[in-house]
Design a protein around this nucleic acid. Sequence first.
DNA 1: TATGAATGAGCGTTCATTCAT
DNA 2: GATGAATGAACGCTCATTCAT
Lengths: 189, 189, 189, 189
Amino acid sequence: MQEKRRKILDATLKLISQFGFHGTPMSLIAEQAGVGAGTIYRYFENKEALIMKLFLKLKAEISQEMLNGFDSTRPPEQVFRQVWLNTFHYCIQHPAEMMFLEQYHNSPFLTPASESAVQDMLAPLVKYAEKSTASGQVKEMPFEMLTIFVYDTTIALAKRHISGFLKVDEFALDLAVQASWDAVKGPAA
Amino acid sequence: MQEKRRKILDATLKLISQFGFHGTPMSLIAEQAGVGAGTIYRYFENKEALIMKLFLKLKAEISQEMLNGFDSTRPPEQVFRQVWLNTFHYCIQHPAEMMFLEQYHNSPFLTPASESAVQDMLAPLVKYAEKSTASGQVKEMPFEMLTIFVYDTTIALAKRHISGFLKVDEFALDLAVQASWDAVKGPAA
Amino acid sequence: MQEKRRKILDATLKLISQFGFHGTPMSLIAEQAGVGAGTIYRYFENKEALIMKLFLKLKAEISQEMLNGFDSTRPPEQVFRQVWLNTFHYCIQHPAEMMFLEQYHNSPFLTPASESAVQDMLAPLVKYAEKSTASGQVKEMPFEMLTIFVYDTTIALAKRHISGFLKVDEFALDLAVQASWDAVKGPAA
Amino acid sequence: MQEKRRKILDATLKLISQFGFHGTPMSLIAEQAGVGAGTIYRYFENKEALIMKLFLKLKAEISQEMLNGFDSTRPPEQVFRQVWLNTFHYCIQHPAEMMFLEQYHNSPFLTPASESAVQDMLAPLVKYAEKSTASGQVKEMPFEMLTIFVYDTTIALAKRHISGFLKVDEFALDLAVQASWDAVKGPAA
DNA sequence: TATGAATGAGCGTTCATTCAT
DNA sequence: GATGAATGAACGCTCATTCAT
């Protein structure tokens, strides 16, 4: 029954986002998931594998969300804003997911394998970016650099919002998107 | 003798940046530092305090480096570029320090206390930013948002460079700085 | 399975009565009990709790033993002798238990909580003592003082016997009981 | 300078009576005594030796006090009462000393050596007891048994007084001495 | 003689993982 | 499949003792 698997992943997310990888014993995950401690090992090889699987799941989820409503026929600025806002809204509506992802990204758990496994989820975006770059509407820069302004800045803003360091209202949000777009927009835009 | 204290901090940085907080036992730190296990506790209350002290030290160091050559009489774009490049060069020349800082920033170790302890190190920059904002040379945005484009984007680029995902040569670097500046530059610039 | 719990308590008693609280590491208790080191913590919160639980168990045991054959219809002298001898025989037949109890009684482990938890086990004796006091067959003294002559003197004798300082044969025993009774017997006895 | 030696013993007594043998690190003793940690080892071989030396010192002290005003020409009852009261008053005026002695007596530190080293301090009393026994004024019992009623009962009373379990006023004190005397007094008394 | 920084063996405790049921 | 009691390696930390100064 994959119902149990889901409950385990949910419990892991909830606990790790709050207490960190090492503040979250397997026994606590089991308890929170409502399963026996041994049961976890029927679904995941070990703790590290469980965490990596959760990472991949969430990475896929956020990538999916980023692409929500993506339409390659619309102009770059609109696409950019949409992706940007998709990402931002996902983050502030899923703070636990974001915290987990960030924690994982900056931990020694991260392997090239887990990193690259998600790359091609954003394939449509890569293709679209190349086209926009070619047309001069987006600065000519590698996709990996582009993601800084459509992913990292967004995450950075969401973090400041969630931690309370920066109150992000409609106005501030607009400002941030505009700034990010100004960063990447090309001479022809 | 503060020589030992320094060796302990050095060992902690080296090991934690490589193996993470919890992959680095105190005994290993002691060994790497060339001191007895108990000696660490003469200089630091416990593991958590050791890590926080290291964080504060590195945070002060990177803040210092960011402000290197800072001259408030020069125009905003030049100041921006300098700070940006200062930060970037610190990161790629001190990857261990950067990894540690990022790991700490995204961990449950982070407390409001350790966060705020560093805030005023960048005080000159805050003041300068306000002036630049007022003159219209920088977009009117809170300092906390500004830092996204002069700190987070820089770190993001450095990470991609270090992990090998993005080869950052002179040209790419220029591109990234320009993009970041485009993000924050105001109507009067 | 409470079998393991019992084995742990047995091992603790044996080792602590011999080596003292701090001469008895948890690892040794585990080994002696034939369980894993971590297993102890499934049954007892920590070392201190383990020791307190053992204390309470033994205190209940000795109190039970003291009251063995207690019959409030018999005359005070007979009751006194019986209780006294019950106590003495328990001590010399359970030297480990006695050593442990005495060690605990004179240690900083002792808390008012653990002290008072046993008070009412001797309730029948308290009541009987009051009656005997009222009838003049026992000196009019607080129960707490009475216990000196029916508990402390007994323990003192048992200790001297066990340590070999005083050979306590039938004759010596009679002498000691008689002396103790002489201490508390009232004008009407 | 034996001044330091005395300070170390004083500190040891104060701390151990309060926190117990194992709640009292050597470093704390050094601090309380106002000497360096290493200095203790110039006066005492190690912690165990320090504690034993303190025990012997206090044992001598209390023995001295017990014999205070001892006059072998006076009748047994008076001598008994005096020794009893000497002991009691020493205890309630020196609770730290008493607590330490009791803790030591019931610990695995106690060796036959440390026990017997004090025996002959009470030699005059032994002799006097033999005489009193022979004359029938004291029950014919070994000196070791006699001490139960002139030492252990006293300590037991003092403990109850200090811990607050039994309020010992003049009247109660008289009662206790009388009871103890009744225990040992012989047919000719 | 006195010091106190340094040591490292040894402690109490945790928790990822196993396996008999 | 599912369980959770049991495990023991490994951890953070303490403190009696040493020794260079």
